Simulated scan of single mutants.
Amino acid sequence: MPVAYCHTPLGITRIVEEDGFIAAISAMNEEHEVAIAPTPLLQTAIDQLDEYFKGTRKVFDLPLKQAGTPFQQQIWEQLQLINYGSTISYAQQSNQMNSPLAIRAIASANGKNNLWIVVPCHRVIGSNGSLTGYAGGLWRKQWLLEHEARTMGTGQTRLDF
């Protein structure tokens, strides 16, 4: 599996390609050597992440495929419908999935998302507007929400009502 590493404002990001798809994007807490991407797809992913961090890209156009159950796949597909600069609560997400009692299962699936930023689980927050749970660290979640709010000119990092 080809792998690329790139610098972002939130640290080094690791991107994995598998069978012509982006299979994983994750923030790393440790340093890693950054080199030229070994494939055109990985370079495209780096370019699109760079555009996101510059505030010029709001929607990603990458072939994505991460391993997961059909339920997890459904959750991750729904996450991609959350507009840039917007937030929803876990309860709202479970209602949108027609599973109002599955909040914990949905939150767990969000936590297993391996496509950092591109599948925007950072846009799901607590019903009271709190920043709850984020595999990359709550400081990264807050940074991403503030970045999107600044780019949109809203200053909004709390739950949209």
Rank of each mutant, 00 (worst) to 15 (best):
C6Q: 06
H7C: 01
T8F: 04
T8V: 07
L10Q: 14
G11I: 03
T13H: 14
I15W: 06
V16I: 10
V16Q: 05
E17Y: 05
E18C: 08
F21K: 13
I22D: 05
A23L: 00
A23K: 05
S26D: 06
S26R: 10
A27G: 05
M28R: 11
N29W: 02
E30W: 01
E31Q: 10
E33G: 12
V34M: 01
A37F: 06
P40R: 13
L42A: 09
L42E: 12
Q43D: 09
A45L: 02
I46T: 11
L49Y: 00
E51R: 13
Y52H: 08
T56C: 02
Q66H: 08
G68W: 08
G68S: 03
T69Y: 02
P70D: 15
Q74C: 02
Q78T: 11
Q78F: 05
L81Y: 03
I82W: 05
G85R: 09
S89A: 04
S89K: 01
Q92L: 01
S94N: 02
M97P: 07
N98I: 01
N98P: 01
S99R: 14
I103P: 01
R104I: 10
R104L: 12
I106V: 14
A107G: 13
N110Q: 08
K112D: 14
N114M: 12
L115H: 07
V118D: 08
C121H: 09
V124H: 13
G126P: 03
N128C: 03
N128Q: 14
S130F: 01
S130G: 10
L131C: 11
G136V: 02
G137I: 10
L138D: 07
L138A: 11
W139Y: 09
